[in-house]
C-alpha cells in the first residue's frame, strides 16, 4: 500500500497540574527529549527516534486531560483537500497558523462528535533522531535514558458518539476499522480501533457517558524486555501503575498502563500485528471483553472503563 492521506499520529497535547513535576516525569522518567518551550508555557517533547520536532506537548492547567490530538498528513495539498472534504461533510474546521506550535506548520483543527479536538498538519521541522542520514549508527545514548520509547504511537479517547467519530475517520480521513468490541445487543460498538497505516491502531475510542475524555496516550517500545524495564523504572520512580506488564487481546500488544503525575493515563507497549486494507476487522463480544482488554487476567479492572481525565 502506498501511504497517502493521513500518515500517523503526530502530537498529543496534554494538560498537567504541576508543570515542573511533569517536565521531570516526561523528561527523566519517560526519557522523552525536551525540544522547546513556547510563550504560552507549553513544553515540547519528542521520543528519541522520532525525527520531527515534537510529538508530545504539555501545558499547565487546573485540570488534567487532552487538549488536542494531531495527525501528520502527507503534504500541503493533502491538508487542503482534507480540510475541504471535512467541510463538505459538515465538519466545521479552523486554521491554526504556522508557528502557533513550535516548528509546526499550519494546522487544520476540528471537533469530532465525542468532543475531542483533532488536528491535521503537513509540516513539522525535521530535527532528526540524533543520527545522520548518511551512515547512521543503530541507536544513540538517548535510547537508554529513562523508559525511552521509540515514538508516540496512538491514543484512546472516551466519549458518547463514537459512531459519529468513526464515520468521520473512515469516510473523510481514510481510516479503517481493525478491531471492535460489541455490547450485549450485538449491534452497538462499545469500542473501536482504527488505523490510518499498517499499524493495528492509530486511534481507538470507547463509548462513555462523558465527552472529551482521555483514556491514554501510548508510546511504542521495541521489545517485551523493554516493557519489563519500563515497569522497573516506574517502580523505582514510584510511578502510579494502573495494570501490567500484561498483554492486550485486542491488537495483541504487550502493555503497561500507568498514570502521569497529574493522573493522565499513559501506556508503554510493544508489538501487535500489522494490518493491511484487505483484512477484515476482528470482533470481540461483550462477554469476552475482559480477555480483549487484558488477555491474561481475562477480566477488566474497574479503572479501565471508568477512570479517565
Amino acid at each position: 500500500m502506498a501511504m497517502t492521506g493521513v500518515l500517523r499520529p503526530g502530537h498529543a497535547v496534554v494538560r498537567v497540574l504541576d508543570l515542573e513535576e511533569s517536565v521531570d516525569f516526561y523528561g527523566r522518567v519517560m526519557g522523552l527529549k525536551e525540544t522547546g518551550r513556547d510563550k504560552n508555557g507549553r513544553v515540547y517533547f519528542k521520543c528519541w527516534d522520532e525525527r520531527d520536532h515534537n510529538s508530545f506537548v504539555i501545558r499547565k492547567a487546573d485540570r488534567a486531560g487532552l487538549d488536542a490530538f494531531g495527525f501528520k498528513v502527507r503534504d500541503k495539498a493533502t491538508l487542503e483537500k482534507l480540510d475541504s472534504d471535512l467541510k463538505a461533510y459538515g465538519v466545521a474546521t479552523e486554521r491554526m497558523p504556522a508557528g502557533e506550535m513550535l516548528e509546526t506548520g499550519e494546522r487544520v483543527r476540528f471537533q469530532v462528535p465525542t468532543g475531542h479536538i483533532i488536528e491535521l498538519y503537513a509540516d513539522k521541522k525535521d530535527v532528526g533522531n540524533g543520527m545522520p542520514y548518511v551512515n547512521p549508527e543503530a541507536w544513540t545514548p538517548d535510547a537508554e535514558k529513562g523508559i525511552a520509547p521509540i515514538r508516540m504511537d496512538h491514543c484512546l479517547i472516551y466519549g458518547g458518539d463514537i459512531d459519529g467519530n468513526r464515520k468521520i475517520f473512515e469516510e473523510v480521513l481514510g481510516f479503517s476499522l481493525v478491531e471492535r468490541v460489541k455490547l450485549e445487543d450485538g449491534v452497538t460498538d462499545l469500542a473501536t480501533w482504527l488505523t490510518c497505516s499498517t499499524k493495528a491502531h492509530d486511534i481507538a475510542m470507547v463509548r462513555h457517558a462523558e465527552d472529551g475524555k482521555l483514556h491514554h496516550v501510548s508510546f511504542l517500545l521495541d521489545s517485551w524486555e523493554r516493557v519489563l524495564r519500563a515497569a522497573d523504572l516506574m517502580s523505582m520512580n514510584r510511578v502510579s501503575i494502573d495494570i501490567g506488564p500484561t498483554r492486550h487481546g485486542v491488537t495483541r500488544g504487550t502493555t503497561i498502563y500507568f498514570f502521569d503525575p497529574s493522573g493522565n493515563r499513559m501506556e508503554t507497549f510493544c508489538g501487535g500485528y500489522q494490518w493491511y486494507p484487505d483484512m477484515q476487522p476482528v470482533t470481540w463480544t461483550w462477554d469476552e471483553v475482559g480477555a480483549g482488554v487484558f488477555y491474561h487476567d481475562r477480566k477488566l479492572n474497574e479503572r479501565f472503563l471508568s477512570v479517565v481525565t
Partner: peptide, 26 residues
C-alpha cells in the same frame, strides 16, 4: 483511580484531623 489528582474518584471529606495537600483537578 489515577492516584494523581486528575480523575476525581478518590474524593473524600476530611471530618477530623490535619493534612498537607497538593494541587488537584478543578
Amino acid at each position: 483511580g489515577c492516584r494523581g489528582g486528575g480523575c476525581g474518584v478518590c474524593k473524600v471529606e476530611i471530618v477530623a484531623g490535619t493534612y498537607s495537600k497538593r494541587v488537584m483537578s478543578r
